[in-house]
Each structure stands twice: as C-alpha cells, then as structure tokens.
Design a protein around this nucleic acid. Structure first.
Lengths: 404, 404
DNA sequence: TGAATAACTCAATTTGATTGAATAAATCCA
DNA sequence: TGGATTTATTCAATCAAATTGAGTTATTCA
C-alpha cells in the first residue's frame, strides 16, 4: 500500500536505472569525449569509452540525425587500415544564452555547443525594476537568436548570473546589496515563463568555475577551486568533475572568511573578512580620489594611482594566500584558479605576488598550482552560458537514476 | 589505430555503460533501500526506487540466492490487499573487518552487513615492526572469522585505519609521527596479499565519517563535515552522499588550519594550528602532572584536573568554533558532526561550549546544526569496517561507468 | 458474500549493447 | 605489382535486463 513517506524521504532518492537511462548516459559520454578530444573516429571513441564500435555507430547516427554531430570527412590513419571518418560537434547543433545582471547593465551572449561566443549584446538597465528587466531580456535574447539563425528548438536554455546568493531560484542578500530590488524576486520562475526554456540561476563564481571546467584550465582538472575577484570576492568549486554548491547553494563563499582577526570592519558584522582586502571595491577604496570604476576601465587612472595600487596588491595577495592555504587544507584540490572581472594585467600581478604555495601549508608536500583563469570574464555572462551547456552535455550520474 | 594517449588521459575516464552495469547498480539500489528503510516488501521497494515490481522481484531472488537477503514473513498491510512479504538484510550474508592501528595496539573488529559489531579483539603491538604486525593481523582476523563462523567467501574486505595521511596505499607523515616505522610502508599491498581480500586504507577521520554516513547521523544527511578529535584533530567529509578525499587524499585536514595567527608553535612549522588547542594531546598538556592517557581512560584523574580541563574545554571550543565557521563558509554542509576517540562526557561538554552556529557566519541565515557523532569510536576500527561495507553497498556512479 | 484492492509471479515484449560476419580502404612486404 | 595484413565501418543476429500484461492469491470493505 502506498504511504506518503515513501515519496518524501530525501535520502531514499536512490532511484534505479534502466536501458533508456543508460542510453541517455552513453549519448552524453560520446558527446563529452568528442568535445574534449576533438574530432574522433567511431573506433577511437569506442576505445576511449569502452563501448563497442557498433554502439558508437548507433549513437553517432542518432546524434547526427538530431544535428549535434557532423562527419568531418576522411582522415588518413597513422598506420595501415582504412582511413577514419572523423566525427565533430556541429556548432549549430545547439545554443545557450548567458545573461549577466548587475545594478547597471544586462549583458546577454549567445554561445554554441562548441563553447564559442557567437554574439553579444549589452543593455543599460540602471534604475529599472526587475519586472521591467525581464521583457528586455526576452527581447535581447530573441534578437540574438534571430540574427544568428538559431532555431527555437536548438536553444538549450539560459544561465543567469548575478553577484548574489540564491535560495530556491531567487536572490537573497546578506548585508547591503547593490541590487536591492532583486532581493527575493523570483528570477527563475519569471524568466522560465518568459523565455520558454530552462533557466539556471547561479552566482558569478560558480558560473565562472563551470565555464573554466568546460572550456578553460578546468578541462585538465577534476577538482579545483575558483577564486572569483569581483566587486566582492566569491568562490566556486568543481569537485570530482561537477560543480559543488553545498547544502543551500552557498559553498565557496570566500568573501566573508576571516583572514585578519580584528581587522577591517565588514558590513556582515565581522571584522577582517577577505572581501575587505582582496576585492575590486577594496582596490577602489585604495585609489581614493580617482573616479569610480578606475580599476576596471581606466588604465590612465590606474597608472596615476600606481603606488596606492601597489600597496593594495601586496595586501590583497597576502590575504588571498591565507585563504588559499585554508582551501588547500580543507579541500585538497588539484589546483586553485583565480579569475573574475578584474583586468588581466592586474590579475597577473596579483597572482605573481601570491607566489607559490609550496611551503605555505606544512601539510602539502607538493606545490599547489595557482592558475590564472583562461576564460576572460569581461562579462560574467560567458560563465552563465556554460551552465545549461554543462547540464546538457556532462555525463552526470543523476541521468542514470530515476527520479523517485 | 590505437594510440597510447587514449588509455592514459585521466579526464577521458568517462566510460560508457551497459546492461550488466545497470544490473549491478540496481542490485545496490535495492540493498541500499532495504538497509536504510528497514524490512520492506517488494512492492514498496519498487515504489521507492522507481523500478518495476517484477524487476525488484528478480533482483530479490538473485540476492536471496546469494544469501544477502531473507524473507521476514508476512506483514499485514495497512489497508486492503494481500499482506506484504518483507525483505530484510541477512546479517550473515557478508562481513567486513575493521582494523585500527596506532603505535601501541591493534584493534580488529568483525562487522556484519547490517553494521552490527559481532566480535572484537585487541593486540598489543608496541615496539613491533610493520612486518611483524601483518602476521598478527592475519591471525587475529582469521580467528575472529572462525569464531563467528564467517565463511571466507562472505568476507568483503578489510578497512585499515591509521592516524596518518596516505599516498598510493602507504602512510606518509609530516612532522613528527608516533609511528615512524610505518612511514612509507606499503600497507595496502602487504595486507591485500596476506589477507587475500580487498584492503582499504583510510585516515581515522574519513573512516569515522563513512561510519556515520552508513549507520549514524549521516543516514539523514547528504552533505556533512566530520570533525575528528583524536590525538590530533582531523576532518572527513561526505559530499553528495560520498566521501570526498580531495586530489591527493588530504581533504579535510583540519589539524593544521590556523585558528590563532601567531599562536602556539606547531611541529608543522606554523603557529596557531587547531591541533595545538583542540586535540587530546592538547588536553593532556593542559593536565600537567597527571598520568598519560588520563583524558582518555581515567575518570578519577579527570576529576582531579577539573579546573585545568575546564580551561582547556573553553579554549578548544572557541577554536573549534572558528574552524566550524570556516567550514561553513567554504563548504556549506548540511551539518557538522563532531566525534573521535574523545570520551563521550568530554565531547558533550565541548559541543555545548561551542554553542550554536547561528550568527557566527554573517552569511548563514539558518543555524548550522552541530551534531554529536552517534557511532562510538572507542575503537576507530568500527569506522574502518564501514569502508568496505560502503564500497560494497553504496550505489556509486562509478559502478555504471566502464573503467577505460 | 461479492467487489475492490494490493502483492506477487509467469510469460511475452521491448530496448539497447554486444558479437560475428562481411566489406572497403589503406599499408606492408615479397 | 599483388597478396597479406590491418583498420574502420556496417549489417544481421544474439543476448541481457527492464517493462508490460495477464493471472493468482490474500485481504478489507460494504
């Protein structure tokens, strides 16, 4: 007899699997293998995945029919034997939108399944209420799709990035926020409705980490932590190849880790939070007297404040180092990646000043690589576009489990 | 044509899946469902797993035939309909060994698949070289199995726990260790050979976390961090239902997180490491003049040192709190579990003094539960026994991927 | 007492991976 | 140059495992 507890128990979510699930999973495995290792022959994919050639052939036919793969023509194989018929991702096979929102503007990008940015659009939204921004997003994205001739059914979804934290699909803020109107606004619901496609909401740091995982340094890493330097400081992590968000979507919140007990007061109520030292807003504060946004957009102003900036870099690097050691001790990642909306020159100098992490933690017998992000996040929207792409391409275990 | 890079690329490890894998996975799903939710009818398992009744019936028959399940007799169902025939784990269906090693003794336990400790044995190994200990382990475990009439083929494996860190199956130490002879000794190789069954090597903290996950508070949690208070301080974590060990097996190394910059010097070279405040060795140090091991075994001595102990508790609680906040910010777990080889009375007092974690991190709008471990780790061996059990029972994604 | 409901099994069906045979295209070597 | 060998691929047949449908049994409800 049915009893309600069966459906509710969260840990009973161990659903079984069946043939259909296996097929869905294998499709992803094939796509992922091609995505990561370039054009490949059926035989090569079979060897790499452990599946039989025939299975690959069947899946490839299916994927070609649905426009995700194309044959690249014959490539002479190294040794004897017939030439290989390479399979490659068909760039026009699928698209995702990346949307970044901050208090002054909306950036929308259209990205194809190979990860290439195809088109970008920026709209000023300063002072607009969320309900007024939603139609702008709809208009902007459909214009992007129209100009790129991306058919509706080829649109996999949209990833929305905001410099906030979330709960159940709407932003929540702690302490002061630059986007008070968005607090508790049901972003996911409204946009899913308005766009008619899956919408994923994520903070800038995690989105950037997913972006790196798909197309940047992360391709070669299974576990890494991404330190995101923006207006504040955030963090995102990829563990075992998948983004880890924690129990309530707040994992990686580096900004309010205390790096200097009793240090600068923070809006959160504590003192000495990393955010008060290593963020762009901290850099801005160090450059007193210079115009707002000098750090981000004004090289001349930067040069003018060289000494102050130098001091900031030193202090920021020192505290980032403390945070990195903490991360190393707690998570033991393969590498720490640093990026964000900070200009590349500044980022490079910052990383250089952090130095190696060889001997920082007595526990680490090896050096923990400190890598500069490869994906340029001039707009965090690029990271957003990676979210639905990851969801649609990655062979996730959840695919194999029935949802019960 | 085959090229070597195919087999080597670590990220190409995205193997496909097939029918056999699916079956293996579903077997685990059934076992896990029964393990977590007690005796269940076939129909109920079907509902919980999303599989058809017939499939459950087939798998149940297979599992009964191999002695892992048994029918518990008819149980009248709540409403109408035929009574259910409950299925339960057969305790004698499988056994694992848990072995804990420290510098003075070896504890071996025999645990059955329901998680019940069936037999325990302690052997003095003070001063013995590893090569002399291995035969002792073999003799002790085979004696345990003999007395419990556990057939060889019912032995799933052994989980070995040592208060160290590991690399490729052998212990490595940083700084001084109480077990210098074990440094770099190929524990896994030698024991696998000697015991003739799978051997898993793990540090005390992760083993404890896995134990809690299988049979303690962890049953209700998907993500938690286990703070292990032993001679030092360690940490283990369960993320998304699975132990996370980091890139080199060092995730969770709380002991050398700095909680008091410039504080007490630590053997690791830094200052202010958590281990110097919140460990049993720190407690011991606080109880100067009392016999060694007073904290662990001597209630009378404990009472005698009440004031000193009180001071220790206050300081340890304060610094553990700092570490907990750090963990909360970085990992956002569902709960933090505290346990270890610390006596239960002390543990309770310590947790009480840590207080709630409601407002500690400005980021946390909810209280982060601070739970006392349920599994009493008088011997960490119990955690060790959980390791092969988890490996043999948990529906892991790796089961579904071909190893390529 | 019969209708409804639930648990379970047997038999047939379906899906998708694997295996085996066949074909084609290239290289190697006598 | 031409046959042997190797490799890539497809077609057809086989196999394994989940699902579906029919039938049986046991219980409750009216």
């Amino acid at each position: 007899m049915f009893d309600v507890t069966e459906a509710q128990n969260p840990r009973s979510g161990t659903g079984g699997t069946n043939l259909g699930h296996a097929r869905a999973f294998n499709r992803r495995v094939v796509l992922e293998t091609i995505r990561l290792h370039g054009p490949l022959s059926r035989a090569s994919i079979a060897r790499r995945t452990g599946l039989s050639i025939q299975t690959i052939s069947n899946i490839a036919e299916e994927l070609s029919a649905s426009g995700l793969l194309r044959e690249e023509g014959l490539r002479p194989v190294g040794g004897r034997g017939a030439p290989a018929l390479d399979l490659a991702l068909e760039p026009n096979g699928g698209f995702t939108f990346g949307i970044s929102l901050d208090h002054r503007r909306l950036v929308a990008v259209l990205v194809d399944i190979t990860g290439r940015e195809r088109r970008q659009e920026t709209v000023d939204i300063e002072g607009l209420a969320p309900d007024a921004v939603v139609p702008l997003i709809v208009r902007t994205t459909s214009e992007l799709a129209r100009r790129e001739r991306a058919a509706k059914k080829r649109l996999w979804g949209a990833g929305v990035v905001m410099p906030m934290l979330f709960e159940n699909g709407h932003p929540v803020a702690f302490g002061p926020t630059s986007m008070p109107a968005w607090q508790d606004y049901p972003v996911v619901d409204r946009l899913t409705q308005a766009l008619g496609m899956p919408v994923l909401l994520e903070n800038d740091a995690t989105a950037a980490a997913v972006g790196e995982q798909l197309y940047g340094v992360g391709r070669r890493l299974k576990d890494f932590f991404y330190i995101y330097i923006g207006v504040g400081v955030g963090g995102g992590m990829i563990l075992a190849g998948h983004p880890y968000r924690g129990h309530a979507g707040r994992a990686g919140e580096l900004g309010h880790v205390v790096v200097e007990p009793g240090g600068r007061p923070c809006a959160c109520g504590n003192r000495g939070c990393l955010e008060r030292y290593a963020s762009l807003s901290a850099a801005q504060a160090a450059l007193q007297g210079l115009p707002e946004d000098a750090v981000q957009v004004d090289p001349a102003a930067l040069a003018a404040g060289a000494a102050a900036l130098d001091d900031w870099l030193d202090l920021a690097a020192k505290h980032l180092r403390t945070a990195a050691v903490m991360i190393a001790n707690l998570l033991d990642p393969e590498a720490i990646v640093i990026g964000g909306i900070i200009p590349e020159v500044l980022l490079g100098r910052l990383i250089a000043r952090m130095g190696g992490l060889e001997n920082s933690a007595a526990l680490l017998p090896r050096a923990l690589p400190l890598l500069q992000a490869e994906i340029d996040l001039a707009s965090p929207a690029l990271g957003g576009a990676a979210l639905p792409l990851f969801d649609g391409l990655a062979p996730a275990l959840s695919l194999l489990s029935k949802s019960v």
